[in-house]
Amino acid sequence: MSEELYQQAIKDLAAEASQRLEAPDASATLDNPLCGDTVSLDLRLSQGRVAALGHGAKGCLLCKAAATVVAQAAVGLEAETAVALADRVGAMLKQGAEPPLPALAAFLAVRPHKSRHGCVLLPFKALAKALGR
């Protein structure tokens, strides 16, 4: 079970380097008080879309991996679509919905572990918060 949760794809995502943006249009920081995960996320916006994204994640492997997915997938999305990702990832984890992004397939193994859902959701919630939700 642990090998599935901590599969190489997750570890590779978590190991990706991250960088904050200088002079972003919007930023947000969210904490997970349960485990101490913290995600800070910066955005540049252009014509209602995410034009650039930077982030810094201090947290567990799942949180860092999910933050990388956000960084890779959110650029180019309409703000409304990007905001909706948090709910769609929540539905994937809690209600058996399909992964809203191909890279999230690796996170299906998190479904049975309710206490870890928050780790995956945190970067997506930070994205929504940075976009004003």
Partner: peptide
């Protein structure tokens, strides 16, 4: 290794 990941694996 993050403490949360270690705790999870120990719990398993």
């Amino acid at each position: 290794c993050h403490p949360h990941d270690l705790s999870h694996l120990l719990g398993e």
